[in-house]
Design a protein around this nucleic acid. Structure first.
Length: 415
DNA sequence: CCTCCACCGGAACGTGAGGAGT
DNA sequence: ACTCCTCACGTTCCGGTGGAGG
């Protein structure tokens, strides 16, 4: 126990730790330069450029899957724009950033904007979290903006989640923001919407779309070569020299992430986890072995997370599958699963749902990748779904056991 | 070739919680 | 305080179906 720890601390003392700047591998980090996104940066830059001359830029919609650099490019260009304006002695545009997945409502979006541009209540205090009519906070924002000529650039990250949560409300927010322009005398607002969902446009109100979607910028996924380039760049700043054992490590990370539809965030996450793993073990270098291990860790973590956050009914269904699998059954049919589920529900004293509903829950578990199902016909003996656990029994068992309600019955049932 | 099992999965409807408007 | 909507979650009802066995 003492020895490896001793060794580990020694490493830190000698400054031989693996990381130089771990934070540069986190998704929030904006690097000095962004490879392979010249085209997108160019587009956004040329659209925002007029802001330097005091002219309002068009609104922009950015599309692309997760980890394709949308957010980071937006941040990067804005940062540059602001600093350029400052250098030239021009009032810089007000750059604000709102993540719509976290800040989910009309009011809170406005509140965030007020905070970021320093709009306050008439008495100078901060805008309250709640309690004001939405109209009022809107006019506070307007007043502050119009006090002097400003250009406000609003980045709405993950706008699609806004509309997904509530189509009407989402459209309302966007509509009220775009419309605010015509109510302002001195200032202008321009919006950069960022969306993961390519179909996002379809559910958008046409009035909103016509103003919001003036310009569109597409972010394609990175391919394996590009991912490798990005990794190489980050490795230089994130890790100490020689901390990566060989070229193969980066290639492997790149290849694994490329399989995940070119998600750079995943790639960097994988690299960081691999580094942390190596560090924790007191190894001097990150090897391919660490990367593979890290892949497993990440996978396991996401599975654990999805199972944990499952509603109790779904857990009960999963438990039923697990119980049957533990009895050595490889293939489980809906009927059997339902019977066991009924037992479990009884013991848990929760409502016993109908088979129809359970059938849907089973499909959901399939979508989440926790089980695999195929519809098969057993001829004379009917048509049903063949269910299999998609993950290790051991892992499912331990996670389900963490739920107090289920851990009680696991003994009862297996007895 | 037909039958008929045991479920699939679509559709319409019921219910209660939570928000927005008034 | 009140009504009106919308949603998520469930239920009921039911037509549909691949293929083993007659």
């Amino acid at each position: 126990m003492e020895k490896p720890l001793d060794k580990l601390f020694d490493k830190f003392l000698q400054g031989q730790a693996i990381f130089r700047q771990r934070n540069t591998l986190r998704p929030t980090y904006v690097p000095e330069d962004l490879p392979y996104r010249d085209e997108q940066m160019g587009r956004i830059g040329s659209i925002l450029g007029p802001a330097l001359r005091g002219a309002p830029p068009s609104n922009i919609l950015c599309y692309g899957k997760t980890g394709t650099g949308k957010t980071v490019v937006a941040k990067y260009v804005l940062k540059l724009l602001v600093s350029k304006a400052e250098q030239s002695g021009i009032t810089p545009p007000l750059a604000t950033f709102v993540n719509c997945r976290i800040v989910g409502t009309n009011y809170r979006v406005l509140k965030r904007l007020c905070d970021q541009i320093g709009a306050t209540m008439p008495d100078g205090s901060e805008v309250p979290f709640t309690g004001l009519p939405t109209d009022e906070i809107r006019s506070i924002l307007k007043k502050k903006l119009d006090a002097e000529p400003n250009i406000l650039v609003v980045v709405l990250d993950e706008v699609d989640s806004l509309v997904k949560r509530d189509v009407n409300q989402g459209n309302d927010i966007l509509y009220s923001l775009t419309r605010m322009n015509s109510e302002l005398e001195n200032s202008r607002i321009s919006i950069i919407g960022i969306s993961n969902d390519l179909k996002f446009k379809e559910v958008l109100d046409p009035r909103v779309l016509s103003t919001l979607g003036e310009e569109e910028v597409i972010f394609p996924p990175y391919n394996a070569v590009e991912l490798k380039g990005i990794l190489q760049q980050r490795v230089k700043i994130a890790f100490n020299e020689g901390a990566i054992s060989d070229e193969g490590v980066i290639n492997l990370v790149g290849a694994l992430a490329a399989q995940e539809h070119g998600d750079a965030r995943r790639a960097l996450d994988l690299l960081r986890t691999a580094g942390e793993l190596a560090e924790r073990r007191g190894d001097e270098q990150v090897s391919q072995e660490h990367v593979r291990e890290a892949q497993k860790v990440i996978e396991r973590d996401t599975i654990t997370e999805t199972v944990k956050t499952l509603p109790l009914q779904s857990k009960a269904v999963l438990f039923a599958v697990y119980a049957l699998a533990s009895e050595g059954k490889r293939d489980i049919f809906t009927g059997e699963c339902y019977n066991v589920y009924t037992e479990i529900a009884k013991i848990l004293s929760i409502d016993t749902l109908t088979q129809r509903r359970i059938s849907d829950l089973i499909s959901e578990l399939d979508m989440l990748g926790l089980i695999n199902t195929t519809v098969i016909s057993k001829g004379r003996y009917g048509r049903t779904k063949k269910i299999r656990l998609a993950i290790g029994k051991r892992q499912i068992g331990t996670i389900l056991d963490e739920d107090v309600r289920l851990s009680k019955i696991s003994k009862e049932l297996l007895a």
